[in-house]
């Protein structure tokens, strides 16, 4: 058997062990979900069909965003960063396993645990308190595919940021810039459909749109047939581009490590 499924399973177990901490995070995510739902309700009260969403769509979007914070890790961060900082990554690079593949598998396992532990509570609480627009089984299945693609795209982004640590002495500035971009362009402030004019067009074309906006639109049933395939294609395209860039950067990092000795 390949090692990657094992890595993913192990990461899932490791993260599931700290279930209490994850549920505590989910409580905060839920609380933010409520506040944001009330805010968008007021906005859609003033502009009922803004961005093609109705009020129920917008509220559903808010809770979905909160549910996906954990799985796609909107706030950034990858354990790999610490391993690069401490130099332990040299060990990883000497393993007969692909560095990027290893960490992608690890991240998929982590995301699985986060989806269960941090995704359920905001969704359930939101559904109990508000009139959410939730789909039938087929819609959930379509959503599941979009979430997997979102996790992979999110990993692609975070992997690039983590690898930059090979060249930086202090990555706090880069982490902050990455956080601002991720928060702004993923729809954490407001659904991207409600971004005005060219800003909306730009935001919907960037990779961060693949993290939350696209899965949300799939869940809300805004894509059918060919449109759905195009939405997946958008996510997959970014995932491939980012993972490709990650591969190139890994090779460069490996050369650097060989030359400079870490």
């Amino acid at each position: 058997m390949s090692v990657y499924p094992w890595v993913a399973a192990y990461a899932f177990r490791r993260h599931a062990t700290y279930w209490l901490g994850a549920v505590a995070e989910a409580v905060t995510n839920t609380m933010f979900g409520f506040v944001r739902a009330w805010i968008v309700l007021a906005l859609w009260g003033a502009r009922p069909a803004l961005g093609g969403y109705d009020a129920a769509d917008a509220v559903t979007f808010c809770f979905l965003t909160q549910a996906l914070i954990g799985p796609v890790q909107v706030f950034g961060g990858l354990e790999l960063t610490q391993r690069i900082r401490s130099g332990d990554v040299a060990i990883d690079l000497h393993r007969p396993v692909d560095l990027q593949g290893w960490w992608l598998a690890d991240d998929l396992g982590r995301a699985g645990a986060a989806l269960l532990l941090r995704g359920a509570l905001p969704t359930l609480a939101g559904a109990l308190a508000f009139d959410l627009r939730l789909p039938g089984p087929a819609g959930w299945a379509a959503f599941a595919v979009a979430v997997v693609l979102a996790v992979v795209t999110g990993f692609g982004l975070r992997y690039l940021v983590a690898l930059a640590m090979f060249w930086l002495h202090d990555d706090r500035g880069l982490q902050a810039v990455a956080l601002v971009a991720s928060m702004f362009f993923s729809g954490m402030l407001l659904p991207l459909v409600a971004f005005p004019g060219w800003l909306g067009t730009l935001a919907q074309a960037l990779p961060w749109a693949a993290l939350i906006q696209v899965p949300a639109d799939v869940l809300l049933g805004r894509y059918q047939g060919a449109e759905l395939a195009a939405a997946y294609g958008f996510q997959a395209l970014w995932a491939v581009v980012l993972l490709g860039a990650g591969r190139a950067l890994t090779a460069a990092a490996r050369r650097r490590l060989v030359i400079h000795g870490g």
Binding site: A24, V27, M31, F32, V35
Partner: peptide, 16 residues
């Protein structure tokens, strides 16, 4: 372990 939940009061409070 429940530390993260108390963020709803601090960070959550700041937001709301």
């Amino acid at each position: 372990d429940v530390h993260a939940a108390t963020k709803s009061v601090t960070y959550g409070g700041a937001f709301l």
